[in-house]
Design a protein around this nucleic acid. Sequence first.
DNA 1: GCCAAGGGTTAACAATGTTTAACAGGCTTC
DNA 2: GAAGCCTGTTAAACATTGTTAACCCTTGGC
Lengths: 241, 241
Amino acid sequence: MKEARILLVEDDQNLGQILKEYLDVKGFSTTLCRDGRTGLKTFKSELFDLCIFDVMMPIMDGFTLAEEVRKSDKDVPIMFLTAKSMKEDTIKGLKIGADDYITKPFSMEELLLRIRAIMRRSQRGENAPPEPTKFKIGQFNFDYDTQVLKDNAEGSEMKLTSKEAELLRMLALNKNQTLERSKALKQIWHDDNYFNSRSMDVYITKLRKYLKNDEHLQIINVHGTGFKLIETSNETEPAQP
Amino acid sequence: MKEARILLVEDDQNLGQILKEYLDVKGFSTTLCRDGRTGLKTFKSELFDLCIFDVMMPIMDGFTLAEEVRKSDKDVPIMFLTAKSMKEDTIKGLKIGADDYITKPFSMEELLLRIRAIMRRSQRGENAPPEPTKFKIGQFNFDYDTQVLKDNAEGSEMKLTSKEAELLRMLALNKNQTLERSKALKQIWHDDNYFNSRSMDVYITKLRKYLKNDEHLQIINVHGTGFKLIETSNETEPAQP
DNA sequence: GCCAAGGGTTAACAATGTTTAACAGGCTTC
DNA sequence: GAAGCCTGTTAAACATTGTTAACCCTTGGC
């Protein structure tokens, strides 16, 4: 099982640092932000499995941050650190969709137990529909596990690199739909920034070359948004009004 | 449940004696040492389920002692007694792999609760389903205990070295998933650095040679991340989402 | 002690994979 | 249609991995 990523937003530098070190030692990959604004920015550019937000923070409080986060990801588990168990806070948090609360002061051990509980829960969710790893794309068979793309027309096989395979898989999973650039960047490159974005463009070019034998396949760009792998059927000639 | 053994290292004779008596009454078998040096010596010659070290001690402080102990046992739970909750101390301790802290002054009751919590935790770890040591990998049978890899197709047996066996075991445990390079290095080489990483590459080559008779087995590289042992079934039928 | 064998590491070089740079077009907006 | 960002493409630069062989060690026999 891969190292889980945690986004920790805590304005108290001391507590934040201690928590981060502790969680890192316990096998998580933790990113610490000092305030809600940088927290939100970080969340939008990287991929996390769990968010832990302090409620009382300057600039942007934990609840507001959570609401913003929910706008771009409605599933990621969120946990709040509250000064004391205030009913109002609790209710507000529940509305936003918090997964757990922990009231200061708390022991590291307790925090860890709760984190593991949440992880276990959200894993179950993932277990439900296993994502396919073998695809039929036009005249090709693509096996994500072996990273092999087979051209059924020519009978040839091409060995893809891991990045090529990951990108093609995401495109295939979203066939005929737009795959958002930032989504792919977060999942494959783990960071949505300019250089990775250009790198992704290079991979799009490579994939287009791999698929060029089948004229019914195209990877088209959706300007400012992402890419779309489209497969047009042979006999369907749509009328142009 | 067997009587748990505790190694208590505390330079304050009064406190040490009181703690020992209390713990003994509560059903533990406690060994008390007055300083880090004798503590280390004792640890190396006997078996303990838990260590409790005072941080402030002459000759050898608790952290140094813990580091030494970690060299010969990287799993035994260690708990620190600290004069006050010093942030630096906490961080230092966490890096070493402490399981808990307790700040003086503390109540006996609190200490007992924490000890039991730790015991419960480490027991859970032990109770968890024991990791398998015998694997069926494609046309091979691999026995980690005897370090023997048997080729069922040819009927031949190969004797692996310990490093080969450990690496193959980790790959087998993560079959069809990516085994992170750093994870393997930490577990098998105990240090994730450039040279060990190259050494691991050499072992990957060796394992590939061992497995090359079965064409459905591959150890493929996930660039910048690790390796994946994949076993492909004979029939390749791509799923249509 | 000396030698040989085996296991493990380091070195060296080849091959492969990924990112960055550079430049050429494209799409949008005003 | 000009300015400014986005995208397409290529090639060079950089980083990681594959492989072989030499080089340490340690161990055990003589």
